[in-house]
């Protein structure tokens, strides 16, 4: 069977791509998508360890992460709609009313 490092490295790559996306993108929706990407990368690591240790707990964590992701998507998209209605934009740089 494959060594576990393959999966962990794949996870690290996808996580980094997601992180860079969160940083560089300006469209809020895309940022949310990139966050999903990062969560998925973490999920992959969880599943890999769960599988190699033969322990179901890791898989359960993935389950919880998915729940959180769903909740985050719902609230995040609600925020997106609220922001869009108020400011007619999805650019995070324009949602800067909170600054001094």
């Amino acid at each position: 069977m494959l060594p576990i490092t393959n999966f962990i490295l794949l996870s690290a790559v996808i996580f980094t791509i997601g992180a860079v996306g969160v940083f560089f993108k300006r469209n809020i929706i895309t940022i949310l998508l990139c966050i999903e990407l990062m969560l998925n990368a973490a999920n992959l690591a969880f599943v890999a360890f769960a599988s190699y240790f033969g322990d179901t707990t890791g898989q359960l964590f993935v389950f919880i992460v998915m729940t959180v992701a769903a909740a985050e998507a719902a609230v995040g998209l609600g925020l997106v709609i609220a922001i869009f209605r108020n400011r007619e934009t999805l650019n995070v740089d324009e949602a800067n009313i909170l600054k001094l």
Partner: peptide, 20 residues
Amino acid sequence: MRYLQSGLTRSYVAVILLGA
């Protein structure tokens, strides 16, 4: 504390990334 907040989303992300 609010002087720490720039109001720019992206700078927050940068800080988080740096922290990670």
